Amino acid sequence: MRVMIDGREWAATAGERLLDVARRNGLALEGTCNGDLACATCHVIVAADWFDRLTPAREEEEDMLDLVADARRTSRLACQIVLTPALDKLSVSLP
Score class of each variant (00 low, 15 high):
R17C: 04
R17V: 00
L18Y: 05
L18E: 03
D20L: 06
D20A: 15
V21N: 01
V21L: 00
A22G: 01
R23K: 14
R23W: 07
R23C: 02
R23T: 13
R24K: 11
R24S: 02
N25A: 02
G26A: 01
G26D: 01
G26V: 01
G26E: 02
L27T: 02
L27A: 01
A28I: 01
A28K: 03
A28N: 04
E30R: 15
G31S: 00
T32N: 11
T32W: 05
T32R: 07
T32K: 11
T32V: 06
T32G: 06
C33L: 02
G35Q: 03
D36I: 02
L37D: 11
A38M: 13
A38R: 12
A38K: 12
A38H: 11
C39F: 13
C39V: 13
A40K: 07
T41N: 03
C42T: 14
C42P: 11
H43C: 09
H43Q: 05
H43M: 07
H43D: 05
I45W: 07
I45K: 11
I45F: 09
A47I: 07
A47Y: 05
A48P: 02
A48T: 08
A48E: 13
A48K: 08
D49K: 08
D49V: 08
D49N: 12
W50D: 08
W50P: 05
W50C: 08
W50R: 05
W50T: 09
F51K: 12
F51V: 07
D52P: 03
D52V: 03
R53E: 13
R53P: 09
R53I: 06
R53K: 15
R53L: 11
R53G: 12
L54T: 06
L54P: 03
P56T: 15
P56N: 05
P56L: 12
A57S: 05
R58F: 04
R58M: 10
E59L: 14
E59Q: 13
E60W: 06
E60Y: 07
E61P: 02
E62W: 04
D63F: 10
M64H: 04
L65W: 00
L65Q: 03
L65V: 09
L65H: 01
L65P: 00
D66Y: 02
L67N: 03
V68A: 02
V68Q: 06
A69I: 11
D70R: 13
D70T: 10
D70S: 13
D70M: 09
A71V: 01
R72G: 15
R72C: 13
R72P: 13
R72H: 15
R72W: 12
R73C: 08
T74Q: 15
S75C: 04
S75E: 03
S75L: 08
S75Y: 05
R76T: 08
R76G: 12
R76A: 08
L77M: 14
C79Q: 11
Q80I: 12
I81Q: 09
I81N: 10
V82G: 06
L83M: 09
L83N: 10
T84D: 13
T84G: 13
P85I: 07
P85V: 12
P85M: 04
A86Y: 10
L87M: 14
L90R: 09
L90N: 03
S91I: 13
